[in-house]
Simulated assay, not measured.
Amino acid sequence: MIVVTGGAGFIGSNLVHGLNAHDRDDIVVVDNLERGEKFFNIRDANIDQYLDQDEFLDWLVENGDDGVDAIFHLGASSDTTEWNGRYMMENNYAFSKGALDIAIAYQIPFIYASSAAVYGMGTDFKERIGKERPLNVYGYTKALFDRYVERQMQATDSQIAGLRYFNVYGPGETHKGRMASIAYHHYRQLHAGATVKLFGEYDGYSAGEQKRDFVYVDDVVSVNLWLLDHPQVSGVFNCGTGAAESFNEVANAVTRHFGYGGIEYIPFPDDLRGAYQSYTEADLNALRAAGYTGTFRSVSDGVADYMKWLDANAPASRQGG
Rank of each mutant, 00 (worst) to 15 (best):
V3M: 07
V4Y: 01
A8Q: 09
G9T: 09
F10T: 02
I11S: 04
G12N: 03
S13F: 03
N14K: 01
G18L: 01
N20F: 04
R24K: 14
I27T: 13
D31M: 06
K38N: 08
F39L: 15
N41K: 10
N41G: 07
D44F: 03
N46Y: 10
I47W: 04
D52G: 07
D65Y: 06
G67D: 09
L74W: 00
L74M: 15
E82V: 10
G85T: 09
R86G: 05
R86S: 10
M88R: 05
N91H: 06
A103M: 08
A105S: 11
A105H: 14
I108Y: 07
P109A: 00
S114H: 04
S115P: 13
S115R: 07
A116T: 05
A116F: 07
A116E: 14
A117L: 05
T123Y: 07
E127M: 07
L135F: 06
N136V: 03
F145V: 02
V149G: 09
E150Q: 08
R151Y: 04
A155I: 05
I160D: 11
A161P: 13
L163S: 07
L163F: 15
P171I: 04
P171M: 10
T174S: 15
R188A: 11
R188K: 15
H191L: 14
A192R: 14
V196G: 08
G200F: 09
G200I: 12
V215L: 14
V215I: 15
V215W: 03
V217M: 02
S222A: 15
V223T: 04
N224Q: 13
L225P: 10
L227G: 13
L228S: 05
D229Y: 03
G235M: 02
V236C: 14
G240R: 08
A243W: 01
A243S: 10
A243L: 08
E245K: 11
E245L: 01
E245T: 15
V250Y: 12
V250R: 03
V254G: 06
R256I: 00
G261V: 01
I266G: 01
P267L: 09
P267C: 07
D271S: 12
Y276T: 04
S278T: 11
Y279M: 09
Y279E: 14
T280P: 11
T280G: 05
E281I: 14
A286T: 06
A286H: 10
A286S: 15
L287V: 08
R288P: 11
A290C: 05
T293Q: 13
G294W: 09
R297N: 15
S300Q: 10
D301N: 13
Y306Q: 01
K308G: 07
A312T: 10
A312M: 12
N313W: 05
P315M: 13
